Simulated scan of single mutants.
Amino acid sequence: MDDHTIGTAPNYTSACIVMFGVNITWILVAIWAIWGLIAAVLLALGVNHLIARCKVWAAERQAASIRRGKQV
């Protein structure tokens, strides 16, 4: 009786990336307006460094997983 098929979920990756860019832009502009350009630049550098570290941590987790015999 139930002819409803379950479809696949839509891929929202590009929407997530675009909204991250929009949000980080308005946050940096607000910080620039409140505390100045130096604070905004320091925050941007901090976020950039954190993103780079996340890539390193992900690579380390993947290498450890492969050594344990699991594919990530």
Results as ranks from 00 to 15, higher is better:
13 T>F: 15
14 S>Q: 12
16 C>E: 15
16 C>M: 15
17 I>Y: 12
17 I>C: 01
17 I>G: 01
19 M>N: 14
20 F>Y: 04
21 G>F: 06
21 G>A: 11
21 G>E: 05
21 G>M: 11
22 V>M: 13
22 V>G: 02
22 V>L: 15
23 N>Y: 04
23 N>W: 04
23 N>A: 13
24 I>L: 14
26 W>Q: 04
27 I>W: 00
27 I>F: 01
27 I>S: 05
28 L>K: 01
29 V>A: 14
30 A>Q: 14
30 A>H: 13
31 I>L: 14
31 I>F: 08
32 W>M: 12
33 A>D: 04
33 A>Q: 03
33 A>V: 04
33 A>W: 06
33 A>S: 06
33 A>Y: 00
34 I>K: 15
34 I>N: 15
34 I>S: 14
34 I>Q: 15
34 I>C: 13
35 W>C: 09
35 W>Q: 08
36 G>W: 13
37 L>K: 10
38 I>V: 15
38 I>W: 12
39 A>W: 15
40 A>Y: 12
41 V>K: 09
42 L>V: 13
42 L>N: 11
43 L>I: 12
43 L>P: 00
44 A>P: 02
45 L>I: 06
46 G>M: 09
46 G>R: 01
47 V>C: 05
48 N>C: 08
49 H>S: 06
49 H>N: 06
49 H>T: 05
51 I>D: 08
51 I>W: 06
52 A>L: 05
52 A>Y: 06
54 C>P: 01
54 C>D: 02
54 C>V: 02
55 K>T: 04
55 K>D: 11
55 K>N: 06
55 K>H: 05
55 K>M: 06
56 V>Q: 03
56 V>H: 02
57 W>K: 05
57 W>E: 03
58 A>S: 09
59 A>I: 01
61 R>Y: 10
61 R>W: 08
62 Q>D: 10
63 A>G: 05
64 A>I: 07
64 A>H: 01
64 A>L: 10
65 S>M: 13
65 S>L: 13
66 I>K: 00
67 R>F: 03
